[in-house]
């Protein structure tokens, strides 16, 4: 075995790359655009926001949602994942006063500052194009009632 005569070995921790969707302000941007474009009275429940977040993850997910809206009986909508990162983003967003929680239901609503952010994002022609396209195509058709119906189906099929 060769003797290398090391005195010290130091390790430097390098920063790691992060996908844009996992950056707080980016996720918040997705949330405020969703609230502005696809939620009546710019209000949404937590499951609804998780559904949006799940949809925006991939083209396949988006397509599934659109198919489901067109023919609910023919489409198999799997359970969408609840992401802890979205919850963290919502906390940040509340701390920044971009959204507020409305009691007693615990829904999230856009504040005036949130509207301002959403407007600026929507007006810019370069950012969040995929997100804007998705929300434009679903418009207001994903409602709280729809979410509740789907949840019922899961509990029924598991009963």
């Amino acid at each position: 075995m060769i003797d290398y005569n090391f005195k010290n070995i130091t390790f430097h921790k390098r920063p790691i790359p992060v996908q844009p969707e996992y950056r707080p302000v980016y996720k918040i941007a997705q949330i405020v655009i969703g609230l502005k474009k696809s939620c009546r009275k710019n209000k949404a429940s937590l499951p609804l926001l998780h559904l949006f977040s799940w949809a925006l993850k991939s083209n396949e997910n988006e397509k599934l949602i659109l198919d489901y809206l067109e023919s609910p009986s023919n489409t198999l909508l799997e359970i969408w994942n609840f992401e802890p990162s979205l919850n963290r983003a919502l906390h940040f967003a509340q701390a920044e006063n971009l959204i507020a929680m409305v009691l007693p239901q615990g829904h999230y609503v856009l504040t005036e500052k949130g509207h301002k952010f959403a407007d600026v994002l929507i007006e810019d022609n370069f950012v969040l194009l995929q997100e804007k396209a998705f929300f434009n195509s679903i418009k207001y058709s994903i409602t709280e009632t729809l979410i509740q119906d789907i949840s019922k189906k899961w509990s029924n099929s598991n009963a």
């Binding site: 950056r23 302000v25 918040i28 920044e96 006063n97 971009l98 952010f117 994002l121 370069f126 969040l128």
Partner: peptide, 25 residues
């Protein structure tokens, strides 16, 4: 996507959103 995120952060910083500057609100 990252370049888009950069722009989103710039827009956010102007609102102002302190997170966009890396500061906890």
């Amino acid at each position: 996507k990252n370049k888009g995120a950069k722009k989103v952060y710039e827009l956010g910083s102007n609102i102002p959103i302190r997170l966009a500057d890396g500061i906890c609100p």
